[in-house]
Amino acid sequence: MKHIATRFFVTGAIFALIGMIWGIQMSATSDHTLAPAHGHLNLIGFVAMAVFGTFYALSPTAAGSRLAGIHYLLTTAAVLVLVPGIALAISGSGETLAKIGSVLALVSMALFAFVVFRHGVGAQPGAQPQ
């Protein structure tokens, strides 16, 4: 699992499975109190990670950069902090983790924008496939 696109896709698939199980649990118990946390798990944990993985699969120069690995770790951290943070905020246990997770998610997206601007999309002319 060395290629960064694979890391994004595998992690995104795991987050999607957790989100789906969580959604079924909410439906079975008719308790949708934590739906915002569930939604963020699916949106950032699966959709954004799949978009990022697709970009890196199509852009080998960007995928080979050190920033790609940092981006993966930052996005994973954002999901792992934000989702429980939202659940804690909803339950009245404080908003600190949700705030930290939100900042991590914002920085992750800003880093993605920087990587796209820096490397473009697709293989660069003369670039060796990885």
Rank of each mutant, 00 (worst) to 15 (best):
F52N: 03
G53M: 02
G53P: 04
G53Q: 00
G53E: 06
T54S: 11
T54C: 06
T54L: 13
F55M: 04
Y56S: 01
Y56V: 00
A57G: 01
A57P: 00
A57I: 02
A57K: 11
A57N: 10
L58F: 13
P60T: 12
P60E: 14
T61D: 12
T61C: 03
A63K: 00
G64S: 12
G64Y: 04
G64M: 04
R66L: 07
L67G: 00
L67P: 00
L67E: 14
I70H: 13
I70S: 09
H71F: 06
Y72S: 04
L74C: 08
L74S: 09
T75Q: 12
T75M: 12
T75K: 11
T76D: 08
A77Q: 04
A77I: 04
A77H: 03
A77L: 14
A78G: 10
A78K: 12
V79E: 07
V79P: 03
V79F: 08
L80K: 10
V83Q: 11
V83P: 09
V83M: 09
V83S: 09
P84N: 15
G85K: 05
G85L: 08
G85V: 10
I86A: 07
I86E: 01
I86P: 06
A87T: 08
A87E: 05
L88V: 04
L88T: 07
L88K: 12
L88E: 12
A89N: 15
A89I: 02
I90Y: 07
I90W: 05
I90H: 00
G92L: 02
G94H: 06
G94E: 10
